[in-house]
Amino acid sequence: MSDTAASPEAGDEDAERRDFLVLAAGGMGVVGAASFAWPLIHSMNPSAEVLALSTVEVDLDPIGEGQSITIVWQGKPVFVRRRTKAEIDEALKGDSADMRDPQKDGDRAQKADWLVMIGLCTHLGCIPLGQKSTDPKGEFGGWFCPCHGSHYDTSGRIRKGPAPKNLPLPPYKFVDDKTILIG
């Protein structure tokens, strides 16, 4: 554009001034467009009432040994399982096995009886089976994802199949012996 309006006698100084004006105006235009774009984009992020649902309290009292419940936290299923002695032993035995995502059982359960995990397969997000007593639990007696055949052990660690990671752990703490707060 600089040559369109340039008169023959306009020197380098004029051209420089014009370039500066173009850059300065263009720069302001970009800042303006970006400050309009950000509210549009940010409006798609979780809204205040979604963020307000970030913690869930769970009463553990009604859960018997060998039983599981599934609760919803941030729209995702969370598995809360009260493990049997046999399952804990099995999980501890697995600590030394060759695993894709090695982790000690002690690092996965704050109290050995209680396993709290996000119940979404780390492969592509299906919910693994194994919460009900009648469900298939896979070759390692934990959970089995029917979508693409991932096997999780009694500590929720990936042992066989395509999933890359162990079932993730949500942040949680024991409020007292019978209550946990997730989130």
Binding site: P39, L40, H42, S43, S47
Partner: peptide
């Protein structure tokens, strides 16, 4: 339109939600 609910029971409230809860709504 991503935040609005076209239903007589929710439309008014969904607009108020846009005003109060949605980021920059």
């Amino acid at each position: 339109a991503m935040q609005y609910t076209p239903h007589v029971d929710y439309a008014f409230d969904s607009v108020e939600r846009i005003m109060r809860d949605v980021n920059y709504g």
